[in-house]
Amino acid sequence: MRTQKRCMGYVAIVVDDYDRAIEYYTEKLGFTVVEDTPQAGKRWVVVTPNPESDCNLLLARASNDSQQVFIGNQCGGRVFLFLHTDDFWRDYAAMKAAGVHFCEEPRQEEYGTVVVFEDLYGNRWDLYQNK
């Protein structure tokens, strides 16, 4: 019997402008642009924290008023995305130096080190490293 690998491929995040979002995710969070392909009336823009990752972030520009209301509030104010790291303090320091807005001071939890930050739009993320 053949087994099939299944994984999340993309998580879409609603943005107001492709270039502004690319600049933030690459310059502030250290992501890499994987793809930026023009399509009819839009672009297929994919960024990733690690080019070897199976799950990447799809930057989806809001195309109407009903989509625009979700920019920065895709999860009702809860933490929406979780950025794993193998070196918390390295990434925290780099992100802080780049001007990323942290909502709290880093803390130790039973599962590891974590801090909440907000992206360009106000979506909340966890930066964390497992113990």
Results as ranks from 00 to 15, higher is better:
Ala21Tyr: 09
Ala21Glu: 02
Glu23His: 12
Tyr24Gln: 08
Tyr25Pro: 04
Thr26Asn: 07
Thr26Arg: 01
Glu27Ile: 02
Lys28Met: 14
Leu29Arg: 08
Leu29Pro: 10
Gly30Ile: 07
Gly30Trp: 11
Gly30Arg: 02
Gly30Pro: 00
Val33Ile: 11
Val33Thr: 06
Val34Ser: 02
Val34Ile: 15
Glu35Ile: 04
Asp36Pro: 00
Asp36Arg: 10
Thr37Val: 05
Thr37Arg: 14
Gln39Met: 15
Gln39Pro: 08
Gly41Lys: 12
Arg43Tyr: 04
Val46Pro: 06
Val46His: 02
Val46Arg: 05
Val47Gln: 04
Val47Thr: 08
Val47Glu: 07
Val47Trp: 00
Val47Met: 05
Thr48Phe: 07
Thr48Tyr: 10
Pro49Lys: 12
Pro49Trp: 07
Pro49Gln: 00
Pro51Ala: 05
Pro51Arg: 13
Pro51Leu: 08
Glu52Ile: 09
Ser53Glu: 01
Cys55Tyr: 11
Asn56Asp: 09
Asn56Gly: 04
Asn56Gln: 14
Leu57Gln: 10
Leu57Phe: 00
Leu57Ala: 05
Leu58Glu: 05
Leu59Lys: 07
Leu59His: 01
Leu59Arg: 00
Arg61Val: 05
Arg61Lys: 15
Arg61Glu: 13
Asp65Gly: 01
Asp65Leu: 02
Ser66Glu: 15
Ser66Thr: 15
Ser66Cys: 02
Gln68Asn: 01
Gln68Asp: 11
Ile71Thr: 03
Ile71Phe: 07
Gly72Arg: 01
Gly72Ile: 05
Gly72Thr: 03
Asn73Phe: 01
Gln74Phe: 02
Gln74Asn: 13
Gln74Arg: 04
Cys75Phe: 12
Cys75Tyr: 14
Cys75Asn: 13
Gly76Trp: 01
Val79Thr: 14
Val79Asp: 08
Phe80Tyr: 12
Leu81His: 05
Leu83Phe: 06
Leu83Gln: 03
Thr85Ser: 11
Asp86Cys: 07
Asp87Tyr: 14
Trp89Leu: 03
Trp89Gln: 14
Trp89Cys: 08
Arg90Val: 11
Asp91Ser: 06
Tyr92Val: 10
Ala93Trp: 02
Ala94Tyr: 03
Ala94Met: 09
Ala94Cys: 10
Lys96Ile: 00
Ala97Thr: 08
Ala98Pro: 12
Gly99Lys: 12
Val100Pro: 05
His101Ala: 15
Phe102Ala: 01
Phe102Met: 11
Phe102Pro: 10
Cys103Ile: 12
Cys103Val: 10
Cys103Asn: 09
Glu104Arg: 08
Glu104Trp: 01
Glu105Ser: 14
Glu105Trp: 14
Gln108Asp: 13
Gln108Ala: 13
Glu109Phe: 12
Glu109Val: 14
Glu109Leu: 10
Glu110Leu: 14
Glu110Pro: 05
Tyr111Glu: 11
Tyr111Phe: 15
Gly112Glu: 00
Gly112Pro: 13
Gly112Cys: 08
Val114Pro: 00
Val114Arg: 13
Val114Lys: 06
Val116Trp: 09
